[in-house]
């Protein structure tokens, strides 16, 4: 059986629940031999039976599942002027100066 290998960068796959979704979508295709989906690298490596499957069909399946190669998620717009007025900042006062004790305690760790 001739086996082909194709690699896709899938920026939307930033966490393991996306890995599960991507694998589920690809495993439904006939001729899939092996899938290595890495959410750390945001990359999918697919080994497939070239007689039954082609890279175009794999890309299409990714697209249909909402993970088109190269496509990024849209990030939320941050609210303006959020500093200091949000409940979070009211609940936990922020410390912006380095505590002397922290400095002494950190010692050799500073080199890291």
């Amino acid at each position: 059986m001739p086996v082909g290998k194709v690699v896709f960068d899938v920026p939307k796959m930033y966490a393991d629940h996306h890995v599960e979704a991507v694998r589920k979508a690809l495993l439904a295709l006939p001729g899939i031999e092996e899938i290595i989906a890495s959410s750390a690298l945001k990359r999918v490596v697919v080994r497939y039976d070239t007689e039954r499957l082609n890279p175009g069909a794999i890309e299409q399946a990714l697209q249909a599942a909402g993970y088109a190669p190269g496509e990024e998620w849209e990030l939320p717009k941050l609210p303006e002027g959020k500093e200091d007025h949000s409940p979070w900042f009211q609940v936990i006062p922020r410390v912006t100066t380095t505590d002397r004790r922290d400095l002494e305690m950190s010692g050799d760790f500073r080199k890291y």
Partner: peptide, 16 residues
């Protein structure tokens, strides 16, 4: 008071 830790096995992605 709660002695807990996270043990991450395998690759660590953005969400982890």
């Amino acid at each position: 008071r709660v002695f807990a830790f996270v043990l991450a096995l395998g690759e660590v992605d953005d969400l982890k």
